[in-house]
Design a protein around this nucleic acid. Sequence first.
DNA 1: TTGTACGCGTTATCAG
DNA 2: CTGATAACGCGTACAA
Lengths: 348, 348
Amino acid sequence: MGMTIKDIAKKCGVGVSTVSRALNNHPDINPETKKMILKTVEESNFVPNNSARNLKRTDSKSIAILVKEIDNPFFATMMRVMEKKIRKQKYSFFIQHMGKDQDEVDTALELIKEKKLRGIIFLGGDFRKNKERIAKIKVPFVVSTSAFDKLPEKCIASYVSIDDRAESRKIVDHLCETGHKKIAILASDKKDENIGKLRLEGYREALKAHGLEVDEERICYLDEEDTTYSMENGYRMMKKLLKKETEFTAVFAISDLMVIGACKALLEEGKRIPEDVAVAGFDGLDYTGFYQPAITTMAQPVEEIARQSVGILFDMIETKKSKEGKYLPATLKERESTTGGRRKWKQD
Amino acid sequence: MGMTIKDIAKKCGVGVSTVSRALNNHPDINPETKKMILKTVEESNFVPNNSARNLKRTDSKSIAILVKEIDNPFFATMMRVMEKKIRKQKYSFFIQHMGKDQDEVDTALELIKEKKLRGIIFLGGDFRKNKERIAKIKVPFVVSTSAFDKLPEKCIASYVSIDDRAESRKIVDHLCETGHKKIAILASDKKDENIGKLRLEGYREALKAHGLEVDEERICYLDEEDTTYSMENGYRMMKKLLKKETEFTAVFAISDLMVIGACKALLEEGKRIPEDVAVAGFDGLDYTGFYQPAITTMAQPVEEIARQSVGILFDMIETKKSKEGKYLPATLKERESTTGGRRKWKQD
DNA sequence: TTGTACGCGTTATCAG
DNA sequence: CTGATAACGCGTACAA
């Protein structure tokens, strides 16, 4: 089963080191013998054993992307952008997924040792806890899409993300400014300590800034048993809200997926968007623009986050120093679901 | 930087094999020394080197999922289901992505050697070509979501997929049966030899079966420079079709993503769905059900494909024999975009 | 129950 | 330019 470098050496009548040189594009080797060796390699179905390679190698020139939440709809785009940029730097790289319950630090640590990584990019995952454990990661890494409150010391680290609280506040501002005074929110679960919490805080801030009181009845939390930001959950939450007959003239969902479900529920109940209820989401997923009516949302600068994450990582690899974390601006897409084509709807 | 098993041994004043035994839950070790060792391991930030492990190991009890097209919207679900089922079998596993230009066979071969895999599941990727090269894969594998014309000999292999041609035909049948005679299609690019081609063939067959002639003017091909099944592309294609003023009373898009874009284009032009144009997609993405109007689609049995893929793989690992490839039935979701609540629309 | 010593497949270091 | 040989870190016979 296992063809090894030794077998190839024997077949070619050369030493193993010569084969190794041929395989790894080493300079000091006779082009002819190299050609000959590579040919027999091809014919022999020889596949080098990466474990042995990594074990011996000291310098790898490779980085890994560790993806936590597969569900996240814009990770696909980010991964594509990152791949391109990393390849351009002549680095090898690979993408690996982690299960929901897999620990990000542990797998990172393993991977670093196994592959002799130069750096890591984390996509998703929660880095607000685990602070001491994170310190164990000794290669540069950047957290993409989520931020640290403060960078872990003793690490070479950074983050690239949007400022969830501020951007959330802005989109709720927008709702206020179009005249709404009774704004409901589809939030994440009560225990959430991550971006869901931040977006809810942004909502609260915006209301206060506009002199509106926060009516807890208008805050719909995600069920703690199923905390995914899904259309289904958005639908359910909105149905429930409608049943309560709490008054509201606008809804802000902290995720575009949820907002789609919410729209379905509203339309089913005969509500018009935005005439009866204005609607806004968050994230900037493509299909909010394709929905009828087009849905207002806060668009994450997905490609820019990806690009800068890679940029910063290479920077840190070179300087061996942490870089300041970066908040990139999201852009408010004002669309029909809140403006209805006009600038203001509610003006009571 | 590198704590090794030797260092731990020294620290504990024991031999390396004892440490190894503690780490790998071997039975013949004194519980106390084991406890002691594990404690120092914890304190020392020791991380075992997987490369060295894999190099030595012969039996791995692990399988890999190789994902090719990140874009595919239901891969996330599939991966989740697979993970669960594999874990239940006490196998370790991991998911790895491949770039667009990365060769699936090569990476598989490397991984098999590196990790001593027992089996592989391929998600996406094209296995209709490369037939001889595939034969090099000596561990059982199943191709999920795409089918072989015939199973590669000398391999332990199988596939689980829907019958794209037949299911495509069925949904176009549905359009015919609701009275449509002028049915357009948003197809993939002309050079496509994969599922896109099959779905187009299904369309042709359905029309013929209903005594309708295939008007090439009603076949819209994806641009060869950007062959992704995206909303954006669906939108563009539909705009173009509308400009041509080719007559049609129904559209079938070979992907749900494209159908969303198409709907946008139709609604923008003031067409009503389904009164003016009936609309159908393919894949069964959640989103179609939440759209207004809800869109008729052919739903892939995503979870079942995932489940059976894993099942078959374990089966092959055990028996060491290929299993017959499997076509799983898709289910037609008749929704408002074609029925409008009634059973038939066009009846001329 | 424990420790010693060897080998897994490569690459790196030398001496030729 | 090439070939022997020593690591790389770990698992595992085998001996104790």
